[in-house]
Every structure is written in C-alpha cells, then in structure tokens.
Design a protein around this nucleic acid. Sequence first.
DNA 1: CCGACAATACCGCATTTGTATGATTTTGAA
DNA 2: TTCAAAATCATACAAATGCGGTATTGTCGG
Lengths: 211, 211
Amino acid sequence: MKTAITVAIVEDKEPIRQSLAILVDGAEGFSCQATFETAEAALDYLPTHCVDVVLMDIDLPGMNGIDCVRHLKALCPHMQFMMCTMYDEDETVFDALKAGANSYILKRSPPHKLLEAITELHEGGAPMSSTIARKIASSFYVSPAAPNELDILTTREREILDRLSKGHSHKEVANELFVSPTTVRKHIFNIYQKLQVHSKIEAVNKYLGRK
Amino acid sequence: MKTAITVAIVEDKEPIRQSLAILVDGAEGFSCQATFETAEAALDYLPTHCVDVVLMDIDLPGMNGIDCVRHLKALCPHMQFMMCTMYDEDETVFDALKAGANSYILKRSPPHKLLEAITELHEGGAPMSSTIARKIASSFYVSPAAPNELDILTTREREILDRLSKGHSHKEVANELFVSPTTVRKHIFNIYQKLQVHSKIEAVNKYLGRK
DNA sequence: CCGACAATACCGCATTTGTATGATTTTGAA
DNA sequence: TTCAAAATCATACAAATGCGGTATTGTCGG
C-alpha cells in the first residue's frame, strides 16, 4: 500500500472543519494531519510540519486564505494548496492563483469529488471546479475584433513578426523556420514597408497592439 | 432521454479520426456529426452546420488547428472547442487558449476520460489534462521572491527603457534626454545586465510585463 | 496561359546596437 | 563628511540590423 496523502485543513467554521477532517481521515489513502481555525495558526505550524496538500478556506477571520497561501507558498513551494470556498468571483479566483494556489474547488462539490481532486492535485494536476476552469480558460481569449492593419501581412510575415516579438534575432528566426537569414531580413523589410515603421520595436508594438 | 451531444472531429490521421468517431458515436448520449481531415474543410462546413463540441487536432497539414479555432470561434462563439493533441508545450497551450479553445486534452488520455471531458465541456466546464491545467494555473503565480524585477532599475534607467519601448533609437533617446548617445548605451547595457536580457525587444517585453 | 504575389535567396553598404574597459562627476544616504 | 551608487562620457570592435537592388520558384485566380 502506498503512503497516504497527508492533508491539512484551514477553515474557521467548526462543523465544516470537522466534516472535512472526518471525510479525509476516513478515506483510504488519505490522512488528515492538522486542522486550523485561522490563517495565523496555519502559518505558525505548517512551515515546520510538512504536509502534501492544504485545503484552504478563503473567508477567514483575520488574515484571509489567499494571503495565507501567499506566505506559505513562499516558505514551502512544494506544498500544494487547494482553495476550498463558497465564492467563485473572478477577482478572488485570479488573486488566489497569483498567490500560488494550485487548485480551486467550490464547497458545493460532492465529497467524492473532493477526494478525487486531492489525489489529482497530489499527482501534479490542478483540479478546478468546472465554472472556475471556464473562467480561467476564458481569461486568455483575445477577441479577434482587432484592427486589421495586420491583415495586409502574409502568413509568413505574421509568423516572423510573432517570433521577433518574443525577442528572437533574425538569425534565430531563420533557424527556427529553416530558411536563410537573408530571407528573414527580406520579410522583415517588407513588413516595415507595410506597417510603415523602421525598427523591430515599432513593428512589434503594432503587432501586439500597443500604442 | 436527453438530446445527444453533437460532436465534430478535425484530425488528419485516418486511424485516429476513425477511432475517435467510433468512440464518440458508439457512446450513449453522443453523436458524431462530421469529421474533417483539414482545417479548411472544417472552416467550410461548420459555420453553417452547428455542433456542440469540436475535437480539434493541432498539427494539421495546411492551416493548423489553433488558427482554425480562431476563425471558427469568431463565427460560432457558442461552439465549444477541445484541443486534442500530442503536444503539451507552453506556447501551444497558451496560443490555443488565446485563440478561443475551451479545453485542452492530451491524446494519451484514456477513451472514457475523453467522453467525460466532452460532457464536462458541454456543461460549461473547461476540462484540461492535468499537466496542462498545472501549466495554466502556474502561469498566474507571481513569485514574491522577485516582486518586481523592474524595482532594481534606477529612475534614469526606467526613463530610458520607457522611450525605447516607444520605438526610439539610442540616438533619439540621447537627444530627448540631452545626454550623449554613449551614455544612453551605457544605461541600456546596465539595464540588460539587471534584467538578464540581450536585446531591446526582450528588455521592453519585461518592462511592459510580457513573457 | 498569364500575371500577381508570396516565399525563397544573394550581394552590398551604412548605421545601429551589444559588449567591454575605463574614467569623471553628482548625488544621496550612512 | 565620507563612501557607494548613479549618472555621465569616451573609445573600440564585432555583430546585428535597416535599406536598396535583383532573381528564381511556386501557387492561385482569372
């Protein structure tokens, strides 16, 4: 039998904390090592007492769960943090991820889902409740309602601009695209003509839509 | 019984396309409406023939799957796109999300996981393979160890970087700041050292907070 | 079939830029 | 006030870049 996944719980509400602890401890392959009512208590104990996964409520008295994760993640980068909360507001979700949360699960998730998520988290995944995952994925989407100055560029030209924008030199782009450096230079020259610019930075600025 | 989830598949490799179609069509509650070998074929058909979910390979001959999603998502915002591919490289993943992909699954996922994912996607989730999810979640994390790389720059250095970011050359910046071009170059060189970069574009990207 | 255009490639030149070394003056905080 | 950092300037060289011209090939629409 494999070693159980060790878990800590940070949750101020007594009944929820208790039932989470019982759920985790009662399940095969999981072991609840500690529970805390406050962020401060967790910050005090956890840095010196390693666990695999921390279930973190957000709405805590005193320091909130997000700031708690920020501090703990800095001290124990290997520890996995699962936000476990009622809210699914945008700001909260993204703030949590920025702070170092690895997972974000809504409390209304059924118990077996929670255990599944803990396992997935421990195995290197980043389990998210579906509405949360959708929010995150959507945050990357850039509407194609962009200015069409770039439409006059050919596919190849856009490809080259894209690489230039990542800071690659002529030569590097040439190697990446398996063409000669002179070809790349020619393309770049054509791009400058079309965009009416005279340097890489100006071209990249137009390409990325910065003004 | 509920209406089946309608699915389209875009995949150039015959055996994979076939087995995906059979898997989807054979399962209760799913219906494979169409399959395409190329992005172009999908772009031609799908805008006028609604489906719920599109399974999209990335590595296609001609137009790639990401650009295909970009076009289709603009035409059919309600359609859900699941990237279904071998690769889990950073750039590919994020480009796909920017293009409008709602889900990203590695081909090595077991069949039942794929069907689960389609259902979850259709119900408003954003199913991701675990390594992908981790990448995405991590991309938000801002390490407190390096709060802001730009903090180590002096006022003058920031001033110069700001003008560089507008596309000005060394000489232009020198004139604007009433100093000699060599001074500007010295500053720029110092900036490169501090930011650990070797070109204007890379420096500007860091300055403007791109990756 | 033809013409337009994209992509490829080369040559050459002037300028800009990246890197290095060294030095002087200003400024700000200890 | 004293010291360190910041800002200034110079010289030099190699590499990258911007700009001009020319040419071949392939594709696509008319």
